[in-house]
């Protein structure tokens, strides 16, 4: 069986990287929202919420920085 999404794989590795980084950026936002829901149902405490939100935030910054670098290089 073929994976349909593999058919839309770009020929250009940098372009694939861009797809993946953008997807991860969204995923990190989703995960921060999950943390908020976990705090709401007392599955995590406030300190853990803060610590993990900070951690995800840092990763999101680097992901966005990377996205900008990729876009810049693709434009060259």
């Amino acid at each position: 069986e073929i994976d349909p999404s593999s058919l839309v794989t770009a020929q250009n590795p940098a372009l694939n990287q861009l797809y993946e980084s953008v997807a991860r950026d969204y995923a990190l936002s989703d995960t921060m929202h999950v943390l908020a829901r976990l705090l709401n149902r007392d599955a995590v405490n406030l300190d853990v919420f803060v610590k993990k939100t900070r951690q995800l935030g840092r990763e999101q910054f680097f992901t966005r920085m990377h996205i900008q670098n990729i876009i810049e290089r693709l434009r060259q």
Binding site: A36, L39, N40, L46, T53, R58, Q60, F62
Partner: peptide, 21 residues
């Protein structure tokens, strides 16, 4: 510098989330 900016980024996001909560 990038590491420092990452801290700033995560602080803004975190302060925002905490206040919304």
């Amino acid at each position: 510098v990038a590491e420092t900016l990452a801290e700033v980024y995560s602080i803004v996001i975190c302060v925002d989330q905490v206040e919304k909560m």
